[in-house]
Design a protein around this nucleic acid. Structure first.
Length: 881
RNA sequence: GGUCGAUUAGCUCAGUUGGCAGAGCACCGGCCUCACAUGCCGGGGGUCACUGGUUCAAGUCCAGUAUCGACCACCA
């Protein structure tokens, strides 16, 4: 699938240039079918359904995060041999989409009513066909390995069939019903909203105390006074007990009105005067009270937000204007007792922030209570695991207090409710098939005008996309899905409803894990919003720093439980990481002259080779563990640490003397380790950085034997034995020695160009080891090294200590005595602090007696070590003086 | 009003089951050492918000306080 490896490495730029690489690989992966899930496969399935973005949407940072995380999981599992399906698609997004097209019409000076329903819906479809694919293209740019051959849309034929099937079944079960109830009405959007679609906003208002005959009560909505049909007090409130049951004739702005006084638990006797006016037509609480006590509904505000004819002199007036006028009129009549400023939360429309008007209207409802109980049990039984677990409480709380879901919307764009009314005999028919005449009397039927809440179809997504209600291979293979990844903001809107619908219709959870990722904020911790202008555009970031760098940033920041702040500096850092990897590969490729994989496999490996293999095994193990726990940041951190600080900082440096030296076997073994380590590292990194890893993997030798793409190569498994502890200890001695020498060089300000003369007086246990690796140490520390158990510190030599070994760095009189003294004093102080701490601890009998033996032993070791170190340093300090 | 979370280096944040605090960036010093200056080497810097408690041992567990934040909510 690719050209032969370009051999002369000089052609490779010393900067990683993401654009060309990204353009090259994605189409090939897709064309080769690597993204496809196979419904007939015998392999273990691993499926995820994408949270379908709105067709109107374009990729924002939240999408980028969520889809990056899903892609990491999916790519990892695919490499691990699973039959992976990442099911993509888009949501028709009722209001959002309708508004977009209505706005277009407005530019042409038209409204949807000018077109009529059919033409309007047709126009929305046209818009969807031409402009609806934006976000899909952007997801591809992100590298998302969805099975695009299966892409679905919540309003396509199959899903619409599922929606209708569900509606009919729930209706037949009596769970879907029609009711005259008080709803949240948005006068601007001209539709009902579900409770979830109403947001709370603090607004300043007035608390107006109005005289109601003998009683006084406070209200923030005086205009609803016109709809009052009662007064209510608490049943145990002795102050007002004598009025309960009476009907009072009360003078008001529209003449005398009669209201009945009722006693109801909903009244808080401690708030205000302890009396409330009951306006069943315009307040949810009052509506309930009205129902309980048989108070009539009186509607004084209409769907347009203006006062109705019922409002008499105020008819036609805007509801807020009416509020002001009524207060004035009440004051004129002397009916206002007093007015207090009042700040309170009002319900506003989630889309347009218009104050929602509670109104009584006939709507369709789904009684979710029985479904919720089942869905709660699934989480309690851990058949669904929510990660992180803190969200369980939120889920339970909402589910336990769930109220009927208002599912009808007064829109045109959406799944039209499959209900027909016969005006002749008054019958209602809900049907899977479109009806034309009344099954009962044969008269013409009128179809319900409303559509379903957009979330109704989303709730079916995990099974509707697999072909339900048919019994398909897809459904059998991929349901339930492995994990659902999403933000906490749609736990109620979507996750809870999928759980309910999935369990109800499939008798099985829709997903085993729910991973709730953090919310992405800007660098100042502000929620991103267009109005604030602080939106980070993923596309710009990808263009500037590369997709891999962006993806790696997101995963590195994706710690559980806290919001993410993204900043450009951070992305830049991971751009550098990609560049580092690129250059490491460039180094490897530039040093493969004469490399013969078969011969190399027989070459004897040395300490650094075994060390990096051990570290790589340990890193693979860590990455796997972290990913299995959705700890993306830890996985990314482990990879970063390994690649930069172990592979590049140490192994590549140890490789240089071996590659440039005169021992062909050593050179061969090193080449082999370089190739093998890099190859494995690329596979380990691939889910995080798909593009650069593929590009480099293709360039490494031996590709033909490994397969066509890194995407389908195996995900690294650590060898059975974990890290090789012996090798790591030995390498640590070498590394510590190098560091000690470098440390002296740095502190004494010796130029890196100077080769230092170093004598090591080794600890007996490290004598052979240090001799064996003297050449390596010399190369890494830029020094000439003499290992001599009988060595003594010479004049003009600085002292370093590694464990039991002493290191003398000859600075031949150039040693700055003051600096050396300062350095030694600092180290003595550090040792003494450690000694003091250890002594205090060991001095307490409760510690030595009660702490586990190994902890105590460790403490003793530490003390002994630090004491020896201090002795050496003190002696050395005397020598300097 | 209810619930939950946060408080760790100058900044942004990690810190899985309690066992002398870590990263990135920033900062200081030295380097264009033949993969990389998007780099290399070295360094400084923290009473883990506060108060108590449990424990041999607390950033980690418990209680309370303060500050910030999120979500839920029918006190009109």
């Amino acid at each position: 699938m690719s050209e032969p490896t370009p051999s002369p490495s000089v052609e490779i730029s010393d900067r990683y240039e993401p654009a060309a690489v990204e353009d090259r690989w994605y189409p090939r992966w897709e064309q080769n079918g690597y993204f496809r899930g196979d419904a007939e496969s015998a392999k273990k399935p691993f499926s995820i359904v994408i949270p379908p973005p709105n067709v109107t949407g374009s990729l924002h940072i939240g999408h980028a995060l969520n889809n990056t995380l899903q892609d990491i999981l999916v790519r990892m599992k695919r490499m691990d041999g699973f039959n992976v399906l990442w099911m993509p698609g888009t949501d028709h997004a009722g209001i959002a989409t309708q508004v977009v097209v209505e706005r277009q019409l407005a530019d042409e000076g038209k409204t949807r009513h000018d077109l009529g329903r059919e033409a309007f819906v047709e126009r929305v479809w046209r818009w969807k066909e031409t402009s609806g694919g934006t976000i899909i293209r952007q997801l591809k740019r992100l590298g998302a390995s969805c099975d695009w051959s299966r892409e679905r849309f919540t309003m396509d034929a199959g899903l619409s069939r599922a929606v209708r099937e569900v509606f009919v079944r729930l209706y037949d079960e009596g769970l879907i019903y029609r009711d005259d109830y008080i709803v949240n009405w948005c006068p601007r959007c001209q539709t009902v909203l579900s409770d979830l679609e109403v947001e709370r906003e603090e607004r300043d208002g007035q608390f107006v105390y109005i005289r109601y005959g003998p009683l006084t009560l406070g209200t923030v909505r005086p205009e609803t006074k016109l709809g009052d049909t009662g007064l209510a007090v608490h049943p145990k409130d002795k102050r007002y007990a004598r009025y309960v049951g009476q009907t009072l004739e009360i003078p008001s702005v529209n003449g005398t009105i009669s209201v009945r006084v009722v006693a109801d638990e909903a009244v808080d006797p401690a708030f205000g005067t302890g009396v409330i006016k009951v306006t069943p037509g315009h307040d949810p609480v009052d509506f309930e009270i009205g129902r309980r006590h048989g108070l009539p509904v009186r509607t004084v505000i209409g769907f347009d937000g203006r006062m109705t004819a019922e409002a008499g002199p105020y008819a036609g007036m805007d509801r807020f204007e009416a509020r002001r006028r009524i207060v004035e009129d009440l004051q004129a009549l002397g009916l206002v007792d007093r007015i207090e400023p009042y700040r309170h939360a009002v319900g506003v429309c989630y889309r347009c922030k218009t104050v929602v008007e509670p109104l009584v209207s006939k709507q369709w409802y789904l009684n979710v209570t029985p479904l919720a109980a089942v869905a709660v049990r699934a989480v309690r039984d851990r058949r669904i695991r929510i990660i992180p677990r803190v969200w369980n409480t939120t889920y339970y709380h909402w589910m336990d207090n769930i109220r009927p879901w208002c599912i009808s919307r007064q829109l045109w764009w959406g799944h039209r409710i499959p209900a027909w009314y016969c005006d002749a005999d008054g019958s209602v028919h809900v049907s899977r098939d479109d009806l034309t005449s009344c099954p009962r009397c044969g008269s013409a039927l009128r179809r319900d005008e409303d559509v379903l809440d957009t979330w109704f179809s989303s709730a079916l997504w995990p099974f509707s996309t697999f072909g339900w209600p048919d019994d398909t291979p897809e459904l059998r293979t991929f349901y339930p899905t492995a994990v659902l990844s999403t933000g906490f903001d749609i736990i109620f809107f979507w996750v809870a409803r999928m759980a309910m619908m999935g369990l109800h219709f499939m008798k099985e959870v829709p997903f085993r894990d729910v991973y709730i990722h953090a919310l992405v904020r800007d660098a100042e911790g502000q929620k991103m919003s267009k109005s604030k202008g602080n939106v980070v555009d993923p596309l710009e970031v990808m263009t500037k720093y590369g997709t891999d760098a962006f993806r790696f940033t997101l995963s590195a920041l994706a710690a559980q439980g806290r919001d993410i702040r993204i900043s450009e500096e951070r992305v830049e850092g991971y751009r550098n990481f990609a560049n580092k990897l690129w250059n490491a590969a460039r180094f490897v490729l530039a040093n493969l002259d004469g490399y013969d994989a078969r011969a190399a496999r027989r070459a004897p490996v040395a300490l650094p080779d075994r060390w990096i293999a051990s570290r790589l095994a340990e890193t693979s193990r860590a990455v796997r563990t972290h990913l299995s726990r959705y700890r993306f940041n830890d996985a990314a951190g482990a990879l970063y640490q390994f690649v930069w600080h172990e592979l590049c900082d140490w192994y590549l440096e140890t490789a240089k003397p071996a590659l440039y030296g005169s021992d062909p076997a050593r050179r061969l073994a090193t080449q082999h380790t370089l190739v093998a380590t890099l190859e494995t590292t690329l596979r380990l990194l691939h889910p995080f950085m798909p593009f650069i890893t593929e590009e480099l993997w293709q360039r490494l030798p031996g590709r033909e034997a490994r397969g066509a793409s890194i995407m389908i190569a195996p995900y690294p498994k650590p060898a059975r034995r974990r890290g090789d502890a012996g090798v790591e200890r030995e390498m640590a001695v070498v590394m510590d020695t190098v560091t000690a020498i470098r440390n002296i060089r740095g502190e004494m300000r010796v130029s890196p160009a100077v080769t230092l003369a170093v004598t090591v007086k080794p600890a007996p246990a490290h004598d052979a080891l240090l001799r064996e690796h003297a050449a390596l140490i010399q190369s890494l520390a830029r020094a000439t090294l003499t290992v001599d158990p009988a060595a003594a510190r010479a004049k003009g030599a600085a002292l370093g200590v590694v464990g039991e070994s002493e290191i003398y760095v000859d600075l031949s009189g150039a040693v700055d005595l003051a600096a050396e003294r300062e350095r030694l004093t600092k180290e003595i102080k550090r040792a003494e602090e450690a000694i003091g701490f250890a002594r205090a601890k060991l001095g307490r009998s409760d510690f030595t007696e009660r702490a586990p033996a190994e902890i105590v032993a460790k403490e003793r070791d530490r003390l002994a070590q630090q004491e020896a170190l201090r002795a050496k340093l003190v002696a050395s300090l005397a020598w300097v003086e």
